[in-house]
Design a protein around this nucleic acid. Sequence first.
DNA 1: TCCATATTTTGACAATCATCGAAATATCAA
DNA 2: TTGATATTTCGATGATTGTCAAAATATGGA
Lengths: 102, 102
Amino acid sequence: METKSAVKMLAALAQDTRLAVFRQLVEAGPAGRAAGELASALDCAPATLSFHLKELANAGLIEGRQDGRFVIYAANFAAMNGLLGYLTENCCRASNADGCGC
Amino acid sequence: METKSAVKMLAALAQDTRLAVFRQLVEAGPAGRAAGELASALDCAPATLSFHLKELANAGLIEGRQDGRFVIYAANFAAMNGLLGYLTENCCRASNADGCGC
DNA sequence: TCCATATTTTGACAATCATCGAAATATCAA
DNA sequence: TTGATATTTCGATGATTGTCAAAATATGGA
């Protein structure tokens, strides 16, 4: 993963509501959850949630699919693993030499 | 780690210059690097860099120590591991059931 | 002490972000 | 087709962020 993508993903996760959304979607697994469900679960105005979903989708961390009247969003686990890999690789390297165990 | 700290750390890393600073400090290891060195290495105005260092320190990701006229900053590897742990724990759980391997 | 070097703080500014009502768009059901 | 529900886009607004020159602070050396 390139640094540019990593920054984008970090920025997407660096916000209370968006991190909460992502956690909900991780919890939901591949089945995902509808935008409206997320909005009420997180007590967030639909327009606001839509903004955050767009941000997460734009970073590649989630994906939406139309399902009838609903739009179901699901976490992109591969992308998240990519981010964890980037952080472990680039932001944790020296620590191995010091036994931090990461 | 609490979500609040995680968001703070993510926000600290979600910026080009700050991520670059942190990577430099990971590279430097426990010995760390002086603020001025970082500023010239990253081609960043001292005042701007100071702002970013403060942000990273405030998130707990780095620590500064006075060394004569210099201030040496070093990465806080434990904090970074904490963040990785949080992300793995809270943002990657369901993926295990699907064999993503994280 | 006085000067030079290193860093931080202050203050100002443009740019980006988060929020949400209202309007627009999409889909289904009758 | 019409009406109801789900979601997104638009537009406006206040808040936060990133930048840096200038001034302030801190330390060491002469």
